[in-house]
């Protein structure tokens, strides 16, 4: 059985949906964070697969950017989550609705 690019894209879609669902359904900030990582990497997978299929390096180049951004995001995001946890002793985003209109 030949693994065609379509498979990769389907897998990326599944991972993305899992990430999105986690984002929408879970309350724990850390879990949501991991869901975001899942979505980012799903996007990375589709980039690489598409680049490989088309025989260009653009996809891989884009993945590097995404990884850098994701790393930066993890740094900032985790710092915020830790700070909030210290203050409120909770990681549930539903309780962090101070900016409600």
């Amino acid at each position: 059985m030949i693994v065609t690019p379509g498979w990769y894209l389907a897998l990326a879609a599944v991972i993305f949906v899992i990430g999105a669902s986690g984002m929408l359904l879970r309350r724990n900030a850390l879990v949501m964070f991991m869901s975001v990582e899942l979505m980012l990497n799903a996007a990375n997978l589709s980039f690489v697969a598409a680049g490989r299929a088309l025989g260009v390096l653009d996809g891989q180049a884009a993945v590097f950017f995404v990884m850098v951004v994701a790393a930066a995001e993890v740094v900032v995001g985790l710092a915020i989550i830790v700070a909030v946890f210290r203050r409120r002793a909770t990681a549930s985003v539903d309780e962090l609705s101070g900016l409600k209109g």
Partner: peptide
């Protein structure tokens, strides 16, 4: 009227 849209629930924004 538009204020209630900003609920403060991140998941709603995400949705």
């Amino acid at each position: 009227r538009l204020r209630p849209l900003q609920t403060g629930f991140v998941r709603q924004y995400g949705l």
